[in-house]
Design a protein around this nucleic acid. Structure first.
Lengths: 171, 171
DNA sequence: CGTGAAACCTTCGAAGC
DNA sequence: GCTTCGAAGGTTTCACG
């Protein structure tokens, strides 16, 4: 069900363009990819239905929204059992300061990306939203100086074919 | 310049709807917010020009793109000087596996969110993309079990007005 | 900020390769 | 099976009140 769908070069080209600007019209997509607009519509609809495309999201500038300070909180939840971590995650997700929550391997169970107004706001969030709870054993706060989004998400490159390698060894 | 722009209730309503689905038509936005479609267009255009809206991005499912394993890499870069960290960030951003790079306070200088095909791919990435470089002093790998996006980015709530507080003290 | 009209885009069916 | 053509319906966009 979660298999990686077969994506041909046209799909990949469309996805690359749409990751750059998700509002590109099918007409423009068609012109750049070299197929008909209706084909673009067809492909994109198919990719949405297949679950490759999860949604179209607006990216906002947190600073302009009055949230000029961002941080990552490393959180230990003890004991780390289902009865506790389920409600913990839902509570953290519901905080207006939370942006993303990761459940991790390693000494810290969760990493929470938060956006707050200022240092006072961050202190309040850590004390009231995290360390005040009995299940939260430890919180480590790391401020974000800067962050960069990286290139578009693409399928892994094919390993370069080795000349002379026996074909059919990894069918 | 990076001041938080004054956002009135109409702007906030539009942003909340668009964060939910960035493809909502101006006609639908107008119906839900209670203004004319042309006003919606005007507001959204203004918010884009003001830098509040940074872009419309397509959200893809990494697993369906053949990248079923994600991880966070905590990286120490030593010495932590401009001549080294500038090129380091650019090199990491250019890796097809990288999704986001954070420059942080604390013992780890950078946190890199990566998406790879499998464990073999992750090992290759850590060895070839990170620890092979002289400026990379240490890499700690934390696998992501699961991750959750949180609610829309909204401006900080006004502190509840205290009854009896003297008006005009914070104009 | 709303109205209205023109231009454009999306979206389907049906035919062609 | 996938692509193109063409036309209907809807959306975006602009000048104006």
């Amino acid at each position: 069900m979660a298999d990686s769908v077969a994506l041909d070069p046209v799909d990949l080209h469309l996805l690359r363009l749409l990751q750059n600007d998700a509002r590109t019209t099918y007409r423009d997509l068609a012109a750049q990819v070299g197929v008909a607009p209706s084909t673009c519509l067809d492909r994109v609809t198919r990719l949405r239905r297949a679950g490759v495309i999860l949604g179209h999201r607006l990216e906002l500038d947190p600073a302009r929204m009055g949230r000029g300070l961002q941080a990552l909180l490393l959180v230990q939840v003890r004991p780390h059992r289902r009865e506790l971590v389920g409600p913990f995650v839902e509570r953290i997700r519901a905080l207006p300061e939370s942006r993303t929550v990761f459940h991790l391997t390693g000494p810290d169970d969760y990493l929470v990306h938060v956006a707050v107004a200022d240092m006072t706001d961050l202190q309040r969030l850590v004390l009231d939203g995290f360390t005040s709870r009995r299940e939260v054993a430890r919180v480590e706060t790391r401020l974000i100086f800067q962050q960069w989004e990286c290139g578009p998400l693409l399928p892994p490159a094919e390993p370069a074919p080795v000349p002379g390698a026996a074909p059919g060894t990894t069918p």
